[in-house]
Design a protein around this nucleic acid. Structure first.
Length: 198
DNA sequence: CACCTGATTGCCT
DNA sequence: GGCAATCAGGTGA
Protein backbone atom coordinates (compact mmCIF):
# COMPACT_ATOMS: atom_id res chain seq x y z
CA UNK A 1 0.00 0.00 0.00
CA UNK A 2 1.46 3.32 -1.04
CA UNK A 3 0.91 6.59 0.79
CA UNK A 4 -1.73 8.91 -0.55
CA UNK A 5 -0.60 12.21 -1.93
CA UNK A 6 -2.45 15.19 -0.40
CA UNK A 7 -4.51 15.44 -3.59
CA UNK A 8 -5.64 11.83 -3.75
CA UNK A 9 -6.49 11.99 -0.05
CA UNK A 10 -8.88 14.84 -0.90
CA UNK A 11 -10.46 12.80 -3.67
CA UNK A 12 -10.92 9.84 -1.36
CA UNK A 13 -12.55 12.06 1.24
CA UNK A 14 -14.82 13.57 -1.38
CA UNK A 15 -16.01 10.15 -2.56
CA UNK A 16 -16.63 8.70 0.89
CA UNK A 17 -20.25 9.84 1.18
CA UNK A 18 -23.50 8.87 -0.46
CA UNK A 19 -23.77 9.59 -4.20
CA UNK A 20 -26.36 12.32 -3.74
CA UNK A 21 -24.06 14.12 -1.29
CA UNK A 22 -20.96 13.60 -3.41
CA UNK A 23 -22.45 14.52 -6.78
CA UNK A 24 -22.38 18.31 -6.55
CA UNK A 25 -18.87 18.15 -5.10
CA UNK A 26 -17.67 16.49 -8.29
CA UNK A 27 -18.68 19.54 -10.32
CA UNK A 28 -15.50 21.48 -11.06
CA UNK A 29 -13.27 18.47 -10.53
CA UNK A 30 -11.02 17.34 -13.38
CA UNK A 31 -11.34 14.04 -15.17
CA UNK A 32 -7.97 13.03 -16.58
CA UNK A 33 -6.93 10.30 -19.01
CA UNK A 34 -3.68 9.49 -20.75
CA UNK A 35 -3.84 6.73 -23.33
CA UNK A 36 -0.97 6.06 -25.73
CA UNK A 37 0.71 9.22 -24.46
CA UNK A 38 -2.29 11.38 -25.34
CA UNK A 39 -3.43 13.53 -22.42
CA UNK A 40 -7.01 14.68 -22.17
CA UNK A 41 -8.65 16.59 -19.33
CA UNK A 42 -12.16 17.96 -18.84
CA UNK A 43 -13.80 19.94 -16.07
CA UNK A 44 -16.82 17.99 -14.90
CA UNK A 45 -19.90 20.15 -15.27
CA UNK A 46 -22.87 17.78 -15.15
CA UNK A 47 -23.51 14.66 -13.05
CA UNK A 48 -26.33 12.48 -11.77
CA UNK A 49 -26.52 10.42 -8.56
CA UNK A 50 -27.66 6.80 -8.52
CA UNK A 51 -28.31 4.65 -5.48
CA UNK A 52 -28.84 0.97 -4.87
CA UNK A 53 -31.80 -1.03 -3.58
CA UNK A 54 -33.55 2.24 -2.72
CA UNK A 55 -33.32 3.65 -6.24
CA UNK A 56 -35.46 1.94 -8.93
CA UNK A 57 -33.64 3.92 -11.64
CA UNK A 58 -30.27 2.49 -10.66
CA UNK A 59 -28.57 -0.42 -12.40
CA UNK A 60 -27.83 -1.75 -8.91
CA UNK A 61 -31.50 -1.75 -7.86
CA UNK A 62 -31.91 -5.52 -8.18
CA UNK A 63 -28.53 -6.46 -6.78
CA UNK A 64 -25.18 -7.33 -8.34
CA UNK A 65 -24.90 -8.75 -11.87
CA UNK A 66 -21.99 -9.23 -14.26
CA UNK A 67 -22.56 -5.78 -15.68
CA UNK A 68 -23.02 -3.70 -12.54
CA UNK A 69 -20.48 -5.49 -10.32
CA UNK A 70 -18.28 -2.38 -10.13
CA UNK A 71 -21.03 -0.40 -8.45
CA UNK A 72 -20.58 -2.64 -5.43
CA UNK A 73 -16.86 -1.86 -5.18
CA UNK A 74 -15.13 0.64 -2.92
CA UNK A 75 -15.40 4.40 -3.34
CA UNK A 76 -13.40 5.59 -6.33
CA UNK A 77 -14.10 2.53 -8.46
CA UNK A 78 -15.02 3.37 -12.05
CA UNK A 79 -18.24 1.79 -13.32
CA UNK A 80 -18.34 1.84 -17.14
CA UNK A 81 -21.26 0.29 -18.99
CA UNK A 82 -22.48 0.03 -22.57
CA UNK A 83 -25.46 2.22 -23.32
CA UNK A 84 -27.93 1.55 -26.13
CA UNK A 85 -25.53 -1.06 -27.46
CA UNK A 86 -23.30 1.70 -28.81
CA UNK A 87 -21.97 4.18 -26.28
CA UNK A 88 -19.94 3.94 -23.10
CA UNK A 89 -21.04 5.74 -19.94
CA UNK A 90 -18.84 6.26 -16.86
CA UNK A 91 -19.72 6.50 -13.18
CA UNK A 92 -17.62 7.08 -10.08
CA UNK A 93 -18.59 4.77 -7.23
CA UNK A 94 -19.07 6.43 -3.83
CA UNK A 95 -19.57 5.28 -0.26
CA UNK A 96 -18.73 1.96 1.41
CA UNK A 97 -18.07 -1.28 -0.45
CA UNK A 98 -21.17 -3.44 -1.05
CA UNK A 99 -23.37 -0.38 -0.65
CA UNK A 100 -24.00 0.53 -4.31
CA UNK A 101 -24.05 4.21 -5.03
CA UNK A 102 -22.43 6.03 -7.94
CA UNK A 103 -22.28 9.33 -9.77
CA UNK A 104 -22.82 9.28 -13.54
CA UNK A 105 -20.46 11.68 -15.31
CA UNK A 106 -22.72 13.33 -17.86
CA UNK A 107 -20.75 16.22 -19.27
CA UNK A 108 -17.40 18.01 -19.17
CA UNK A 109 -15.66 21.08 -20.54
CA UNK A 110 -12.45 20.16 -22.42
CA UNK A 111 -9.35 21.98 -21.15
CA UNK A 112 -6.48 19.75 -22.31
CA UNK A 113 -6.12 17.63 -25.43
CA UNK A 114 -8.95 19.13 -27.46
CA UNK A 115 -7.28 18.03 -30.66
CA UNK A 116 -7.21 14.42 -29.45
CA UNK A 117 -10.85 14.64 -28.45
CA UNK A 118 -11.80 16.06 -31.84
CA UNK A 119 -10.11 13.16 -33.56
CA UNK A 120 -11.76 10.58 -31.31
CA UNK A 121 -15.15 12.22 -31.75
CA UNK A 122 -14.81 12.84 -35.46
CA UNK A 123 -16.00 16.42 -35.07
CA UNK A 124 -14.93 19.74 -33.59
CA UNK A 125 -17.91 20.70 -31.44
CA UNK A 126 -19.97 19.05 -28.69
CA UNK A 127 -16.90 17.07 -27.73
CA UNK A 128 -17.93 15.97 -24.22
CA UNK A 129 -21.39 17.37 -23.49
CA UNK A 130 -23.10 14.05 -22.89
CA UNK A 131 -22.24 10.82 -21.05
CA UNK A 132 -21.44 8.87 -24.21
CA UNK A 133 -19.58 11.79 -25.77
CA UNK A 134 -17.54 12.32 -22.60
CA UNK A 135 -16.30 8.73 -22.69
CA UNK A 136 -15.59 8.87 -26.40
CA UNK A 137 -13.65 12.14 -26.06
CA UNK A 138 -11.54 10.84 -23.18
CA UNK A 139 -11.06 7.38 -24.70
CA UNK A 140 -12.86 5.64 -21.82
CA UNK A 141 -14.17 2.15 -22.68
CA UNK A 142 -15.31 -1.02 -20.98
CA UNK A 143 -11.64 -1.85 -20.48
CA UNK A 144 -11.60 0.78 -17.75
CA UNK A 145 -14.55 -0.68 -15.86
CA UNK A 146 -13.53 -1.59 -12.32
CA UNK A 147 -10.36 0.51 -12.29
CA UNK A 148 -9.71 3.19 -9.66
CA UNK A 149 -10.04 6.93 -10.29
CA UNK A 150 -7.40 7.41 -7.59
CA UNK A 151 -4.56 5.59 -9.30
CA UNK A 152 -5.99 3.97 -12.44
CA UNK A 153 -5.96 4.97 -16.13
CA UNK A 154 -8.90 7.33 -15.64
CA UNK A 155 -8.27 9.76 -12.80
CA UNK A 156 -10.20 12.26 -10.82
CA UNK A 157 -8.39 15.40 -9.66
CA UNK A 158 -9.69 18.06 -7.29
CA UNK A 159 -10.73 21.29 -8.91
CA UNK A 160 -13.07 24.22 -8.56
CA UNK A 161 -15.70 25.73 -10.79
CA UNK A 162 -14.95 29.03 -12.55
CA UNK A 163 -15.73 32.27 -10.70
CA UNK A 164 -19.42 32.97 -10.70
CA UNK A 165 -20.52 29.44 -11.54
CA UNK A 166 -23.60 28.15 -9.78
CA UNK A 167 -25.01 24.67 -9.30
CA UNK A 168 -28.47 23.90 -10.62
CA UNK A 169 -30.38 20.77 -9.64
CA UNK A 170 -32.96 18.94 -11.72
CA UNK A 171 -34.41 15.55 -12.49
CA UNK A 172 -32.39 12.77 -14.03
CA UNK A 173 -32.36 12.29 -17.78
CA UNK A 174 -33.49 9.25 -19.75
CA UNK A 175 -34.95 7.21 -16.91
CA UNK A 176 -38.50 5.92 -16.45
CA UNK A 177 -38.49 5.07 -12.73
CA UNK A 178 -38.07 7.40 -9.76
CA UNK A 179 -38.12 10.19 -12.31
CA UNK A 180 -39.05 12.82 -9.75
CA UNK A 181 -35.88 12.73 -7.67
CA UNK A 182 -33.79 15.90 -8.17
CA UNK A 183 -30.52 14.02 -8.43
CA UNK A 184 -29.08 15.79 -11.45
CA UNK A 185 -26.54 18.54 -10.88
CA UNK A 186 -25.41 21.01 -13.53
CA UNK A 187 -22.78 23.75 -13.24
CA UNK A 188 -23.83 26.99 -14.88
CA UNK A 189 -22.26 30.37 -15.43
CA UNK A 190 -24.11 33.36 -13.96
CA UNK A 191 -25.79 34.19 -17.26
CA UNK A 192 -27.45 30.77 -17.16
CA UNK A 193 -25.42 29.26 -19.96
CA UNK A 194 -23.87 25.85 -19.63
CA UNK A 195 -20.14 25.66 -18.94
CA UNK A 196 -19.43 23.69 -22.06
CA UNK A 197 -21.48 25.83 -24.41
CA UNK A 198 -19.50 26.40 -27.58
C1' DC B 1 -34.03 -19.09 -25.34
C1' DA B 2 -36.83 -15.17 -27.35
C1' DC B 3 -38.26 -10.75 -26.45
C1' DC B 4 -37.82 -6.07 -24.79
C1' DT B 5 -35.85 -2.03 -23.27
C1' DG B 6 -32.63 1.36 -22.43
C1' DA B 7 -28.53 6.40 -17.18
C1' DT B 8 -27.78 8.10 -25.89
C1' DT B 9 -26.44 10.22 -30.05
C1' DG B 10 -26.71 12.46 -34.37
C1' DC B 11 -28.96 13.08 -38.54
C1' DC B 12 -33.17 14.37 -40.81
C1' DT B 13 -37.29 17.27 -41.47
C1' DG C 1 -37.91 19.02 -32.53
C1' DG C 2 -38.60 14.20 -33.95
C1' DC C 3 -36.87 9.60 -34.67
C1' DA C 4 -33.91 5.72 -36.29
C1' DA C 5 -29.78 3.18 -35.14
C1' DT C 6 -28.09 -0.81 -32.50
C1' DC C 7 -27.16 -4.66 -29.15
C1' DA C 8 -26.17 -6.55 -24.58
C1' DG C 9 -28.16 -7.23 -20.28
C1' DG C 10 -32.20 -8.40 -17.91
C1' DT C 11 -36.54 -10.51 -17.53
C1' DG C 12 -39.85 -14.00 -18.02
C1' DA C 13 -41.35 -18.36 -20.42
Amino acid sequence: MTEDSPVSRDVRALLAGDAVEVASGLLGCRLVTEFNGLSTIVIIDEVEAYGGADDPASHAYRGPTDRNRSMFGEAGTLYVYRSYGVHWCANVVTGPRDQPSAVLLRSGTPIVGEETMERRRGRCDHLADGPGKLCAALGITGNDDGTSVIDGPVRLAMGTLPQGATIETGTRVGITKAVERPWRFVARITDGSSLNAI
